[in-house]
Design a protein around this nucleic acid. Structure first.
Length: 605
RNA sequence: GGAGGCGUAGCUCAGUUGGUUAGAGCACCUGUCUGUCACGCAGGGGGUCGAGGGUUCAAGUCCCUUCGUCUCCGCCA
């Protein structure tokens, strides 16, 4: 074997230009290009070959009469071969331009060609990658990413992160990394655990978020912190959920809610601008209670109307026993005015009823009143329940719902939670069905004044809505003991087109308040000490007022990129069962590794 | 943990009421073709019908089990 005695690169031709950037101005220049063979068109004599790099394509031509050596190589190369060529950029002959290609007016007759690598036939065609099974695409994610429009998402992501870093740095934030090997916290999501070799039978947990660390940084006097933070949660996945995901994590000292909101609005504006989208700030705000009452959701989609109308009181006095009963026993009766819904057939209404009464939706029924347009601004009522109402009541009902000819009212009566859940889903379903949503519309809104607790019916206790370190409104602190459900907080979510982009809060920096919250949550001193002792201790050692926010970066990019899967904006995502098709992780390990960690395995049942 | 969809050639899919040798398009290979650009034309190779079991004279098709994958619920900020 020959030894290489001097430093030399393992290929001959070093590129001078990029395929996608060559234009007519480059004509007559000698260039060296390198990339992948995109397509090859062999006409018997002349051979055309499209060379592709990360910037685009350009046509290469080999003519057997002009350069038989190059022609011979062109006959031999196949799709996805990696080659380098040297040649002079020339104008294509009249009539042979390709207007659908950026470089369609020019081409290159290479004088030299170097095959840098061969390629087997790919497992799927790159030009129709959208149609290929996702598991196969993930297994060959690097091939899928050879498509420019697939890489575009990653480029968007880079641009947004770059803009975020610049903006926050300019605003005086320090980017600080926090531990990935962290402590398990039983609250919230399931932890990913990492066994310790040095501490037998003890485990680290991967952080669900850097929440506690960032608060401790405020107590360190950092003043303003941010991190593009990887977070881990061992829960079942969805199209918009991965086991590991990224948050833009922010925390600030000596601030109130307004400061956080202002900084975040500036950040979002810059992030949008980075991908060429203008948004106006400040964003509107809606109180949590209003969001629930008007839209049935704490993440309202404001791109269309169809707000919920409360008929609880109205129905409590009506003869319609089914609704009066619900209304008089603490439930709610609400409706949406479905514009144009009066033209629905009975079958259509039945279908809507089926939609809301599935097991997962949970409604018991769907009542409707159709106001059929009969011209001249008049309507005719058609409804299975109209007979229960007097003439006056019908008038009142129409006025309340601002009925116009052609409208239909859709009612749901049940416990508040179900009514809101069902009507929120129905509202979005109808808006999508009827195309009421302008896909280019972008509606950002702050949802503020979240309640401190949510009552968990299964475990029969209060749970922290946001997390237990959220600061209650001053005037509500006493209610922590007397009326926990009424306690409102300085917690806020930013919602984009009906999807929660992020959320945060002002934190408790006073130990007495913190203890009251733990008490309301039924967490005793001992448990609190065990889980958050280091934080409680820090609260007593000069903790400044502080607060922050975390924005889900992956979802943000997903929405900006107009895709509906989070996997599209992650370079190497995992599938729905948290399995990596590319590397086959997770996988079994050697007995030796287990022994070192004092682990033994149990077969699943 | 639960519900639903899908699984047939390298890729995307068709395959009727269970019935002869399982097909198409693209891709691939060979030949042909000197201005194509999804080049064209002619020919060819390629199948564990996801896996296992069952019913039947006969199963891609019916039944059971199981695996993979996607969407959703539960779960998860």
């Amino acid at each position: 074997m020959e030894t290489v005695s001097k430093v030399e690169q393992n290929f001959r031709l070093t590129r001078t230009h990029l395929c996608g950037t060559l234009v007519e101005a480059n004509v007559n220049q000698e260039v060296v290009l390198a990339g992948w063979v995109d397509t090859r068109r062999d006409l018997g004599g002349i051979v055309f070959l499209e060379l592709r790099d990360h910037k685009g394509q350009i046509q290469l031509v080999a003519d057997p009469d002009k350069n038989p050596d190059v022609h011979r190589i062109f006959q031999q190369v196949r799709a996805e071969y990696v080659i380098a060529v040297k040649g002079i950029v020339s104008v294509r002959p009249d009539g042979s331009e390709n207007t659908s290609l950026k470089s369609g007016a020019i081409e290159i007759y290479p004088s030299e060609v170097e095959i840098l690598n061969e390629s087997k036939v790919l497992p799927f065609p790159l030009d129709k990658v959208e149609e290929v099974n996702e598991d196969l695409r993930l297994r060959y994610r690097y091939l899928e990413l050879r498509q420019e429009h697939k890489r575009k998402h990653l480029e968007n992501r880079h641009k947004v992160v770059h803009a975020v870093r610049n903006y926050l740095s300019d605003e005086g934030f320090l980017e600080i990394e926090t531990p990935i090997l962290s402590k398990s916290t039983p609250e919230g999501a399931r932890d990913y655990l990492v066994p310790s070799r040095v501490h037998p039978n003890n485990f680290y947990a991967l952080p669900q978020s850097p929440q506690i660390y960032k608060q401790l940084l405020m107590m360190s006097g950092v003043n303003r912190y941010y991190q593009i933070a990887r977070c881990f949660r061992d829960e079942d996945l969805r199209a918009d959920r991965q086991p590991e995901f990224t948050q833009v994590d922010i925390e600030m000292s000596f601030i109130n809610q307004e400061h956080v909101i202002t900084v975040t609005e500036g950040l979002i504006k810059k992030a949008f601008a980075a991908v060429g989208v203008e948004v106006e700030i400040p964003f509107p705000r809606i109180e949590y209670d209003d969001a629930i009452n008007r839209f049935g959701s704490d993440a309202p989609d404001l791109r269309f109307g169809m707000e919920l109308i409360d008929f609880t009181e109205f129905m409590s006095k009506s003869e319609f026993q089914a609704f009066a009963g619900v209304a008089n026993s603490g439930g709610l009766v609400k409706a949406i005015n479905y514009k144009g819904g009066a033209k629905l057939s009975r079958k259509d209404f039945d279908d809507l009823k089926d939609f809301v009464t599935t097991k997962e939706m949970g409604a018991k029924g769907l009542a409707w009143i159709a106001f059929k347009d009969i011209g001249e601004g008049k309507f005719e009522i058609s409804s299975p329940i109209a007979k229960f109402f007097t003439e006056e009541q019908m008038q009142e009902l129409q006025a309340k719902a601002e009925i116009e000819p052609g409208d239909a009212l859709l009612f749901v009566a049940d416990k508040a939670k179900i009514v809101h859940y069902v009507l929120a889903k129905l509202r979005i379903f109808l808006a999508k069905k009827d195309g009421l949503i302008d896909p280019k519309d972008r509606k950002l809104v702050w949802v503020v004044n979240f309640p401190m607790f949510e009552y968990d019916e299964r475990s029969n206790r209060y749970k922290a809505n946001h997390h237990p370190f959220t600061l209650p409104h001053n005037q509500d602190v006493d209610k922590l003991e007397t009326d926990p459900a009424a306690v409102k907080t300085y917690a806020y979510d930013i919602v984009f087109n009906g999807i929660e982009l992020g959320g945060g809060s002002i934190r408790v920096h006073n130990k007495k308040v913190q203890e009251k919250i733990f008490k309301a949550l039924n967490i005793d001193d001992e448990t609190a000490q065990e889980r958050f002792g280091f934080l409680l201790e820090a609260l007593e050692l000069g903790a400044p007022p502080h607060g922050g926010i975390a924005l889900g970066l992956d979802r943000f990019i997903m929405l900006l990129s107009n895709t509906d899967s989070i996997r599209d904006v992650i370079a190497f995502p995992k599938n729905q069962s948290a399995f990596c098709q590319l590397t086959s992780a997770p996988s079994s390990v050697d007995q030796e590794q287990l022994d070192e960690l004092y682990l033994s395995l149990v077969e699943p049942e």
